[in-house]
Design a protein around this nucleic acid. Structure first.
Length: 556
RNA sequence: CGGUGAGUGGCGCAGCUUGGUAGCGCACUUGGUUUGGGUCCAAGGGGUCGCAGGUUCGAAUCCUGUCUCACCGACCA
């Protein structure tokens, strides 16, 4: 490709809207342009990268035995009513009507469509297992799109769905997908971790997320410093470490300001949460050490607690208990109390007394009290597998695999005849990769002050030819043109900067775009029949004989 | 959805308090100059100041309404 015939679209100035580095660089390097909040046009350079990601994903999925299909973006509402998600999915699901006033949705995911397909097309156990995937546009009406392509409303996703007669078969495919994902992210040249995850609203049991490690990541992931344990922080369990001796003590009332001024280490925090519908009381009390934070997901999984977790508003607390939310206390309360494991590892602490006038000190929750796990794991906690301590890092979720079980196949009656001629409901897995998000994640992980540094496999072009003042020198033009056509003939992706620009402009643009290798053709080395090679990542330079260039580049 | 802030040529911004008919830098066009790290000089083209209504002789500027966008929070395969 010649820059003169291309849409380079690089920008010197940073658009004001961009916050994170990948967003800034994607705009400056001319990868994408915003059309509206969360909606982006992919420019030629960006599309090349996106296609590189998609092709690697496709290749590894095919190798792992999955089969590619393509489903519609627009899906009839009936299917979503059948699965129950027309009600459950919430406002993230964009609903539209056609000219006949029939309801449709813009697909945020494709469980419904694939399940409907398979129940019609597959009728015998002999056709199983089956793993189908697509690479396609999804639409989710995010509350707050941000970070450019990273959390857009429309995005490209690879989603695969597998169908099985039994869980052993599902396990088998799940493991294959796990391995395929490791291969994909390794090939993409990204530093990543697979972590144990919550399966969230999509349903199901076993689940892993794949995270690209980056400080700007939206998720916190916890892993052991001395074992292979790794989990999303929201999933990392914490355990109980009671005091060795039960230092029981009698709570002593203290003035409110003494309670307020106590350190978080020596204080308990109390939440008033909605109880589950079956419970006798309408509310429950959750108690944690103030230095810990409440984990919603863990809390709402408790039998007595409503899911999703709903904390009482300040007004509600005033009405029920006549105090501020920060002064709630676990003692002398009519509501059931859930203590976090952590509260039995301290003694003689402060806590609220359901009063804005005073609090308590010298409170010790007896080791005999039963406790639950409702806090977020923290750096330094004992690893849930008992080996080592937890380290917390930030990650960008780029992949997620689930064992769905029969959530969709039951609701939508998807089954086959088994060996004994009986109808049997299938069990399913689903496996997603955020293809477009990977582009942003790769930049978060690979950049410097000059711009993007693409991993080899993602680069929009492998090599760029930068001629110094070609319009003034016939022999530079000749050498550059020759190199360009020879490289191209070898099937190498080469960007030839044939603009009539000053050298500095070309260097800056090519570094911003992040092309891994560049060849500088200048008078300086031409007398020796040489050109200069420069590696984007290391900055290392070397002189090459013109005759060797093609072989050298091919070997990279 | 709550909080905060912003909408002025393609991009980044000033002007608004104190109304008088729009300006700077980048980018773009032309000519010259320079030539291995975003040269310099000159001359140009391009804007119904988000939209609607109001006040006024006169509105980018004041008032009302509305839309959009960003950030923080809540939410989130």
């Amino acid at each position: 490709m010649r820059t003169s015939q291309y849409l380079l679209a690089t920008q010197k100035e940073i658009p004001a809207e961009a916050e994170v580095i990948s967003h800034k660089l994607m705009l400056r390097a001319g990868l994408v342009r915003k059309l509206a909040s969360g909606l982006y046009t992919w420019l030629p350079t960006g599309l090349r990268v996106l296609n590189n990601v998609a092709n690697i994903v496709r290749d590894e999925m095919n190798k792992a035995g999955a089969i590619e299909i393509l489903m519609p973006v627009v899906q009839p509402a009936d299917l979503w009513e059948e699965s129950g998600r027309w009600e459950d999915y919430g406002p993230e699901l964009l609903r539209v009507k056609d000219r006949h006033k029939r309801d449709f949705v813009l697909g945020p995911t494709h469980e419904e469509v694939i399940t409907a397909l398979v129940r019609n097309e597959v009728s015998s156990y002999k056709q199983l297992p089956l793993n189908l995937y697509q690479i396609q546009t999804k639409f989710r009406d995010e509350v707050r799109p941000r970070f450019g392509i990273m959390r857009g409303r429309e995005f490209t996703m690879k989603d695969a769905y597998s169908f099985h007669l039994d869980n052993a078969s599902l396990d088998d495919t799940y493991k294959k997908m796990y391995t395929a994902y490791e291969n994909i992210f390794t090939r993409l040249g990204l530093e990543f971790r697979a972590v144990i995850a919550d399966s969230g609203s999509i349903g199901g049991s076993t689940s892993h997320e794949f995270h690209v490690l980056a400080d700007s990541g939206e998720d916190a992931i916890a892993f052991s410093d001395s074992s292979s344990y790794a989990a999303n922080v929201e999933m990392a369990s914490t355990s109980r470490e009671a005091l060795t001796e039960d230092a029981s003590s009698t709570p002593v009332p203290v003035p409110i300001n003494e309670f307020e001024n106590a350190s978080d280490e020596n204080k308990l925090t109390v939440y008033l949460a909605r109880a589950s519908e079956e419970a006798e009381q309408e509310w429950v009390i959750l108690v944690l050490r103030a230095c810990h934070s409440l984990n919603d997901i863990k809390a709402e999984k408790l039998d007595g607690v409503a899911s999703p977790l709903k904390l009482a508003s300040d007004e509600k607390i005033k009405e029920l208990i006549q105090c501020n939310s920060s002064n709630l206390g676990p003692l002398n309360t009519p509501y059931p109390v859930y203590y976090d494991h952590g509260v039995v590892s301290v003694s003689k602490v402060y806590c609220g007394a359901n009063s804005d006038e005073q609090g308590f000190k010298d409170v010790t929750i007896a080791a005999s009290e039963s406790t639950v796990d409702i806090r977020n794991a923290e750096e330094g906690d004992v690893s849930p597998d008992g080996n080592g301590k937890l380290v917390i890092k930030r990650g960008i979720e780029v992949g997620h695999i689930f064992q769905l079980g029969d959530k969709y196949s039951s609701a939508m009656n998807c089954g086959v005849l088994n060996e004994t001629g009986k109808h049997q409901t299938l069990t399913m897995g689903c496996y997603g990769i955020g293809v477009s998000r990977i582009v942003a994640a790769a930049i978060e992980q690979n950049h410097d002050k000059y711009g993007i540094i693409w991993p080899e496999a993602l680069a929009p072009f492998k090599v760029t030819i930068i001629p110094m003042n070609m319009h003034k020198s016939e022999r530079i033009k000749e050498v550059a043109e020759n190199l360009y056509s020879t490289l191209k003939a070898q099937g190498i992706d080469v960007l030839f900067d044939d603009r009539k620009e000053r050298p500095g402009v070309m260097f800056a643009d090519m570094e911003l775009i992040g092309i891994p290798h560049s060849i500088v053709v200048g008078e300086r080395n031409l007398d020796n029949k040489q050109v200069e090679y420069k590696h984007r990542k290391t900055g290392e330079k070397q002189l090459l004989d013109i005759d060797e260039v093609v072989r050298f580049i091919s070997s990279l």
